[in-house]
């Protein structure tokens, strides 16, 4: 069975997810949960975006 590289769709998924979180953290920076002081949407958005980018880079490097 011919397989394809899962890193490509996974990478795109986390890029999209990262963009959504980053947008939430940027557009509504003051939005907080009851016990959180930091802008966690922004930080997790950046981390998710980087992870998605890493997966895409690894998939591209192999291909």
């Amino acid at each position: 069975m011919n397989m394809w590289d899962l890193r490509t769709p996974s990478g795109w998924f986390f890029v999209v997810l990262g963009v959504i979180l980053l947008a939430a953290g940027t557009v509504v920076p003051g939005h907080r949960a009851p016990l959180t002081e930091a802008n966690v949407n922004l930080y997790t958005g950046i981390a998710t975006l980087l992870f998605g980018g890493l997966l895409l880079w690894m998939a591209r490097r192999v291909s």
Binding site: I20, L21, G25, A33, P34, L35, T36, N41, T44, G45
Partner: peptide, 12 residues
């Protein structure tokens, strides 16, 4: 999750 996650991360 309800205490630490704002909308967005709560969805995740």
């Amino acid at each position: 999750m309800a205490q630490f996650y704002p909308s967005g991360l709560l969805g995740v």
